[in-house]
């Protein structure tokens, strides 16, 4: 049911963009925390209502995340998602404490996740700008902590609004010895993909 023809070459280009973009972002996160993060090869897929990312054990498990609108030459929605246990790892690394539960996620804890998203997304967009010459701006991240399914579906509907389909560039980064994993999604406006490919000469 994919209406945008996505050639193998174009999918490769999106994976490469994700790789280079998030490479810089993960380095920035390592500088911040002193921990080395491993980056997986990005997956480029059509995000539809039946193929949801598998963030944790159940659709109701608790995840923490942010969404930021990206404006400019390659607009879209950028989202970072962390299973609750991984968010705890980030909090412990960055403020040496963690909330006992959802009700204790105060502004300090929210700002830690927002700041991580901010730094990573900023570096991601810089890398893409350098590759393409695109001008890109981001809005400050907005925070949520809730059931995985509710958070993911809210991100999807935001990105889906006004368009027929959704292409996701999904990248997982992890610290195996601390059972940390984070997920980054870029959901570009599908109409802006051609502009990206022509900037890359594809």
């Amino acid at each position: 049911m994919m209406t945008t023809e996505m050639s193998a070459l174009r999918a490769d280009a999106l994976r490469e963009i994700g790789n280079i973009g998030l490479g810089g972002a993960v380095t920035a996160l390592s500088d911040l925390t002193g921990v080395l993060f491993q980056l997986e090869v990005p997956r480029v897929h059509e995000m539809d209502t039946t193929h949801l990312p598998n963030l944790c054990d159940s659709p109701e498990c608790l995840v923490v995340g942010t969404i930021s609108r990206v404006e400019g030459d390659w607009p879209g929605e950028a989202a970072f998602l962390f299973p609750w246990e991984s968010a705890e790892v980030l909090w412990e690394m960055l403020v040496q404490m963690k909330p006992a539960g959802l009700e204790e996620v105060n502004e300090l804890y929210q700002s830690v996740i927002n700041e991580v998203s901010n730094i990573m997304l900023g570096n991601y967009l810089i890398a893409i700008s350098q590759m393409t010459g695109f001008k890109l701006d981001m809005e400050p991240p907005a925070f949520a902590a809730d059931m995985a399914m509710a958070v993911v579906s809210s991100i999807m509907t935001e990105a889906l609004y006004g368009q027929r389909e959704l292409i996701a560039i999904e990248t997982r980064f992890q610290v195996p010895e601390r059972s940390f994993q984070g997920f980054f999604f870029y959901l570009p406006e599908t109409g802006s993909l051609d502009r990206l490919f022509s900037a890359l000469g594809i």
Binding site: I67, E139, A142, F143, A144, A150, S154, T157, E158
Partner: peptide, 15 residues
Amino acid sequence: GGELFQNRSQTLKIG
């Protein structure tokens, strides 16, 4: 129909 993401500067208010 909830708005899970708080303090969005540009929100579509889809919920």
